[in-house]
Simulated scan of single mutants.
Amino acid sequence: MQEFHDALFPTAISFGATGGPERKVEIVQLTSGREARNLRLRHSRRRYDVGTGLRALADLYAVLAFFEARRGSLHPFRFRDPFDMKSCLPDQAITPLDQPLGTPEGEPAAFQLAKTYGTGEASYVRPIRKIVAGSVRCAVDGVELREDRFAVDPATGLLTLADPVAPGAALTAGFEFHVPVRFDAEHLSLSLTAFKAGQIPSIPLIEVSL
């Protein structure tokens, strides 16, 4: 796996992106007329096109410089999903009660930050790896912890508690996050449309698994 570049794609451009999650489902038509469906990948994979986010010639140059610095599709990087970037709804404020924490990993107790979609047995739990530094709030049984009582690795999304917690305690957290992506194209097709204006019709990005 190539080195991950801890660089954030220009947020002003990502705000105008289009895209969302993709699911790989294998569908087989049976002789009975029914379908057999198999989920090929456990987690969804997000695709975006940020060409729609360009507004000025400066945006074109910013994308060009970012593309070259990443060596095209070689190195993945951080992307701010304009539709899904918080533990809560995009228009709400983060709280320490937003999401339940995952299963402990290692000693002292470490928890993988995650976001749950849906409710009940059909819910989907998405591991969150690329955290926005300083955005995490954490609570035990509804009581928010001070920042010095936990630590978060923004590169892996692992949260480590400074103190042990009682078995069965409700651990929750709120946070802001990025999506690890890479360019899904070998070249950029740049054009100048007018004085101080340009466009790149398509700039595809695809989520990578880390």
Rank of each mutant, 00 (worst) to 15 (best):
residue 190 L to Q: 13
residue 113 L to I: 06
residue 30 L to W: 02
residue 44 S to H: 11
residue 147 E to G: 15
residue 166 A to T: 14
residue 66 F to M: 08
residue 72 G to A: 05
residue 87 S to P: 09
residue 171 L to V: 07
residue 10 P to C: 08
residue 90 P to R: 07
residue 80 R to T: 06
residue 192 L to T: 12
residue 207 E to G: 00
residue 55 R to S: 12
residue 163 D to W: 00
residue 169 A to F: 07
residue 12 A to F: 07
residue 32 S to T: 15
residue 152 V to S: 05
residue 195 F to H: 12
residue 149 R to M: 08
residue 55 R to C: 13
residue 199 Q to H: 08
residue 144 E to D: 10
residue 28 V to H: 05
residue 165 V to W: 09
residue 163 D to E: 15
residue 48 Y to Q: 01
residue 97 L to P: 02
residue 4 F to C: 03
residue 162 A to H: 06
residue 141 D to Q: 04
residue 118 G to S: 09
residue 10 P to H: 06
residue 40 R to W: 00
residue 60 L to I: 14
residue 145 L to P: 03
residue 7 A to G: 05
residue 13 I to G: 07
residue 173 A to S: 08
residue 22 E to P: 01
residue 112 Q to H: 10
residue 172 T to S: 11
residue 64 L to A: 12
residue 200 I to K: 06
residue 3 E to V: 11
residue 15 F to M: 11
residue 175 F to A: 11
residue 56 A to N: 15
residue 46 R to N: 13
residue 139 A to Y: 04
residue 210 L to M: 10
residue 94 I to Q: 08
residue 3 E to N: 08
residue 43 H to P: 00
residue 161 L to N: 05
residue 165 V to Q: 13
residue 48 Y to D: 03
residue 142 G to Y: 02
residue 72 G to P: 04
residue 13 I to T: 08
residue 131 I to E: 03
residue 117 Y to D: 04
residue 109 A to M: 13
residue 186 E to G: 15
residue 68 E to P: 01
residue 84 D to S: 13
residue 165 V to M: 09
residue 17 A to Q: 09
residue 86 K to Y: 10
residue 54 L to T: 08
residue 49 D to Q: 10
residue 156 T to Q: 03
residue 143 V to C: 04
residue 22 E to N: 15
residue 48 Y to A: 04
residue 30 L to D: 01
residue 8 L to T: 15
residue 78 R to F: 11
residue 53 G to K: 05
residue 121 E to Y: 10
residue 210 L to W: 11
residue 102 G to E: 05
residue 5 H to V: 12
residue 26 E to W: 03
residue 181 V to Q: 12
residue 79 F to C: 09
residue 165 V to T: 14
residue 135 S to L: 07
residue 132 V to R: 15
residue 58 A to W: 02
residue 43 H to E: 13
residue 202 S to P: 01
residue 139 A to P: 03
residue 123 S to N: 11
residue 95 T to I: 06
residue 205 L to M: 03
residue 125 V to E: 12
residue 60 L to Q: 12
residue 138 C to W: 03
residue 27 I to S: 00
residue 24 K to Y: 04
residue 205 L to C: 03
residue 187 H to F: 15
residue 139 A to W: 03
residue 71 R to W: 08
